[in-house]
Simulated scan of single mutants.
Amino acid sequence: MNIILTGSLGHISKPLAEELIQKGHSVTVISSKAERRKEIEALGAKAAIGSIEDPAFLTKTFIGADIVYLMETLGAGSFFDQNLDYMLAINTIANNYKQAIQESGVKKIIHLSSIGAHTDKGNGMLAFHHNVENILKSLPEDISIKFMRPVGFYYNMFAFIPTIKAQNLIIQNYGGDAKEPWVSPLDIASVIAEEMDKPFDRREVRYIASDEIAPNELAKLLGEAIGKPDLKWQVVPDEQILNTMIAAGMNPDVAKGLVEMNAGRRNDFLYKDYYQHKPTFGKVKLKNFAIEFAAVYNQK
């Protein structure tokens, strides 16, 4: 099949491209960076250099595709852009996708959504995934869409490193002994590749997770991996986390959205729909990620 991937050579798109190429598919990778061309072509894929903010470019690239994989992304450092309206920016990208899908004639879409996309309330910044799903759902019914909803990415834990080094603590506005799900980007890529080979039937949702662990257990696992067996998880008020993020230069709306997102983890609100449609776990377990975490921790 002829498959178009957005996301350049990111945590998901690169292993996804590799797996699809290995299966014999023709893969085109969209990237905004011309310097990525050689790396994309070295994988055996075609490079389409342009911006997802350009619907004409997207339309031209999508023409002739059997399947298009969509994800929304903002530029590096965008969360520290004081002028960013992230909801508007993401909605604009989604509408660009919608226009390009309609004008190119593509009929099969896989969209990277997220846990929390089932609602626009109580999920903080994840509400933008709900908005994007609704924008894409407004496409004609003969266009089939598979919405992939992964849980929290393993690599988000790298954000814990500064306070671990400074205070021997993981500091968040959620925590405790209730298990919650996490996912490896490799498992996300594997599931998406699997879904591309399955029939498409209008609108479908699939959650993706690799493992589950409670925050207190997670602190113990990561602590042992980095040689800090006494590492603790400390829960602090929302306002403290919010003020810390803003003081570090983060866009206030982004900071508020992140704090509200994590607050939704405290009462399982974020995971309500997930637990009603709980998936089979992927192959990459937290014990595997702990090794990677330790390697990154020791490099910093």
Rank of each mutant, 00 (worst) to 15 (best):
G116Y: 12
S104M: 02
S113K: 03
T92E: 13
G116E: 11
I101S: 00
V106E: 09
V106K: 06
N91V: 01
G105L: 10
I93Y: 01
I115E: 10
N123L: 09
Q102C: 03
A117D: 08
N91Q: 15
N96H: 15
K121N: 02
G124S: 04
N123I: 15
T92C: 07
I109Q: 14
K121M: 03
I101Y: 00
G105T: 04
G116N: 09
K108C: 11
T92I: 13
K121G: 00
Q102R: 07
G105M: 06
I110W: 09
I110H: 10
K98Y: 04
Y97W: 10
V106P: 05
S113Y: 05
E103L: 13
Y97C: 01
Q102K: 11
E103V: 02
Q102F: 08
K107C: 05
Y97K: 03
I115K: 01
I93F: 02
N95I: 03
L112M: 11
G122V: 10
L112T: 01
T119M: 11
S114W: 00
T119W: 09
Y97D: 06
A94W: 01
G116D: 08
E103W: 10
N91K: 13
L112W: 01
N95K: 15
I115V: 15
D120Y: 12
S113Q: 05
G122S: 13
G122E: 14
I101V: 11
T92K: 14
G122M: 10
T119E: 11
H118Q: 13
N91I: 05
H118F: 13
E103N: 15
D120G: 12
V106W: 07
H111I: 00
I109Y: 13
A100E: 06
T92R: 13
S104L: 02
I101Q: 00
L112D: 04
D120L: 05
K108N: 15
A117E: 08
I115F: 09
N95C: 06
I101H: 00
N95Q: 14
I109L: 15
V106A: 07
Y97S: 03
N91A: 13
N123Q: 14
A100T: 03
I110A: 10
G116A: 07
D120K: 12
I110P: 06
D120N: 14
N123H: 12
N123D: 11
I109D: 13
N91M: 08
H111K: 14
T119H: 06
L112F: 02
Q102T: 10
I109G: 08
G105D: 03
L112E: 09
N123G: 14
N96I: 01
G105F: 05
G116F: 07
G124M: 06
H118W: 15
T119P: 11
A117K: 05
N96P: 14
G122I: 06
N96A: 04
V106S: 07
K107N: 07
G124E: 06
G122R: 06
Q102N: 09
K98V: 02
A117I: 07
I101G: 00
G124N: 01
G105I: 04
N91R: 13
